[in-house]
């Protein structure tokens, strides 16, 4: 993967200049690479894993805050917000393909004015398993790019990654343990990831059990007060960065929080950021982080 990225760097550095004339002048060496614009981080990480990184993204600077891995190649053009990508830049980029999600259906006809626009659905009604949908969307994306082999390879890699994590966690004696996966919104509220979420699906695939069984929305999460976690049988809680500075201190002062089984057992585990609304690469990252922090039982809570 790194070698392929290195190969592509030459092409990408010129991609940093979204100036109409620069495009004609830069003759691509080797195979014709598709100039893809991705409106979604989940699709972008999938593209990167398939060796076809996008030339432009909304707010690429926040990638390190939410996605981290796979690393974003340098020189990705910033489109602004995903709800209102900058059309003037989009026009100057002259992309071959725009990939987007149902979340942005409202602007899809607008985007289609600048390049063929394809929508891939993972997080959309009706509720469905994010992992399974990601597999389908990865196949569709690969087919749209004529790179079915890269899609299949990514799916196989993800499956292998899940199996490996399952082995590690089983070896650590954690098979079948209920785990809660949350983001702290503040010291009183969490977003907890349910059965349909990517995290929930990964928990099941690596041989753990999702400790949150309440129904969630089609993004796979529920927003609840922390007291609602008391109903869960989970013996472990993993929370993902980012987390506000005062959250842990305030939690420590709450008797209810301290009485929760996973807090009493000292099994509150901090994980670095993983894209909660991502696709297969995020599933892999989440599985690897789970293995790393749970099997080692590194406790940062």
């Amino acid at each position: 993967m790194p070698s392929r990225r290195a190969v592509m760097l030459g092409g990408l550095s010129s991609a940093a200049l979204p100036f109409p004339n620069a495009w004609g002048a830069t003759a691509r060496q080797g195979a014709v690479e598709l100039r893809i614009v991705s409106m979604d981080f989940g699709l972008a990480e999938t593209l990167i894993e398939m060796g076809l990184p996008p030339v432009a993204l909304p707010d690429p600077a926040s990638w390190t805050q939410w996605v981290v891995e796979p690393a974003l190649p340098p020189g990705i053009v910033n489109l602004g917000t995903d709800r209102e990508p900058n059309l003037e830049i989009l026009a100057a980029l002259k992309p071959d393909l725009i990939v987007t999600t149902p979340y942005l259906d409202a602007i899809a006809p607008l985007l289609a004015r600048f390049a063929p626009t394809k929508t891939f659905s993972v997080y959309a009604p009706p509720v469905g398993h994010a992992f399974d949908r990601s597999v389908v969307a990865t196949n569709q994306l690969a087919a749209a790019l004529g790179r079915e082999d890269a899609g299949e390879a990514l799916i196989a890699r993800t499956q292998a990654c899940m199996d490996e994590a399952r082995r590690h966690l089983a070896a650590a004696g954690l098979a079948g343990r209920p785990v809660l996966a949350v983001n702290f919104l503040d010291a009183r509220h969490v977003r907890v990831y349910g059965a349909w979420s990517l995290f929930g699906d990964v928990l099941e695939r690596v041989g753990l059990v999702n400790g949150w069984t309440q129904p969630s929305n089609y993004w796979g999460f529920s927003t609840v007060g922390i007291e609602a976690l008391a109903a869960s049988p989970a013996s472990r809680l993993v929370y993902l960065e980012p987390i506000a500075a005062d959250t842990l201190g305030r939690l420590a002062a709450s008797p209810l929080w301290r009485s929760l089984p996973f807090v009493k057992a000292g099994r509150v585990i901090r994980l670095p950021a993983v894209l909660m609304f991502g696709m297969l690469p995020s599933a892999m990252r989440f599985a690897r982080q789970l293995t790393l922090h749970l099997a080692g039982e590194r406790n940062d809570g």
Partner: peptide, 19 residues
């Protein structure tokens, strides 16, 4: 980013407490 909704939660005045 639309990934975090904590700001709106505070603005909407939730009374959920744990202590």
């Amino acid at each position: 980013s639309h990934y975090l909704a904590g700001l709106f939660l505070w603005g909407a005045g939730s009374l959920s407490l744990q202590g």
